[in-house]
């Protein structure tokens, strides 16, 4: 089983997140692997372990700091780390990013065929959830997205998708792009041995030239959308917190009634 997992470098959820010049500020200090990508790494490791053989590649696209995301994947047990970094990529929209990831996937696939690309369901910075679909379209591989369960049998992958109005079971031939939700599994913690080993494991770094992607196809210039204003929302004004000493419920009711909310 040969699986490539995409992992994104994002600002830590608990940190003060912000924008700089229309882009999400990403620095090594409070950046980390997108939390939902832990589920993707876990899904890959479980499939490899069940198959008893295989390789798991972790791939990230991003600036120099983004290497932290693949290092985290190594700590969790990924076998190889790939980092695509090139100044020309900065400012890419989802379609530019999908082009770069697709080119990297093809490069690995040409060395020896991959069975799966597994992604997280969403990056918790922009929360667009569009990359997995764009990647499947770009690669022209099977698309099995929002999996809360995944099995691979022979040359076929089957997922369960929990949509608000239906639970679907969908299957498709390999190779496939699968995105997994946080329902799919419980990510493991890195163990000490892997953490030590991850420090010295090599990370393969590729530029656009290594992937044969033209800088004109990606980056700010090719982006179809541009953030023109980003501002922090002001905190709520006139917040009122009361302690219940016997009439908290009445106070709550009065607040709602006065505002016309009840």
């Amino acid at each position: 089983m040969r699986i490539l997992v995409t992992v994104k470098f994002v600002p830590d959820l608990q940190s003060q997140r912000s924008f700089t010049d229309g882009a999400v500020t990403r620095t090594g200090d409070d950046g980390t692997m997108n939390e939902l990508d832990e589920n993707a790494v876990e899904a890959a490791l479980q499939l490899k372990e069940a198959a008893g053989e295989g390789e798991v590649y972790a791939l990230t696209v991003g600036g120099a700091d983004a290497v932290a995301a693949v290092r985290k994947a190594l700590q969790l047990g990924a076998d190889h780390a790939l980092h695509v970094s090139d100044e020309a990529i900065a400012g890419s929209d989802v379609f530019g990013t999908a082009k770069v990831i697709a080119a990297a996937v093809r490069k690995v696939h040409e060395e020896a065929p991959l069975d799966l690309v597994i992604t997280g369901m969403a990056a918790l910075d922009g929360l667009t959830s569009m990359l997995p679909t764009a990647l499947a379209a770009e690669l022209d591989w099977s698309q099995l997205t929002l999996a809360s369960g995944l099995t691979v049998d022979g040359g076929t992958a089957t997922i369960v998708r929990h949509l608000p109005d239906a639970h679907e079971t969908v299957s498709a031939p390999l190779p496939a792009v699968v995105s997994v939700t946080d329902e799919a599994n419980t990510p493991r913690y890195p163990n000490f041995k892997l953490m030590m080993a991850a420090r010295t494991k090599p990370v393969t770094t590729w530029t656009l030239a290594d992937l044969g992607v033209s800088p004109a196809e990606v980056g700010t210039g090719a982006a179809r959308t541009r953030v023109v204003v980003a501002e922090e929302r002001p905190p709520r004004e006139n917040r009122q917190i009361v302690t219940d000493t016997g009439d908290g419920g009445n106070q709550l009711a009065d607040f709602l009634l006065e505002r016309g909310l009840a």
Partner: peptide, 16 residues
């Protein structure tokens, strides 16, 4: 929160 009640929901909700 615009409005908050520090209390047990078992008390606050029925009264509200």
């Amino acid at each position: 929160s615009d409005f908050g009640v520090v209390g047990d929901l078992g008390d606050v909700l029925p009264q509200a």
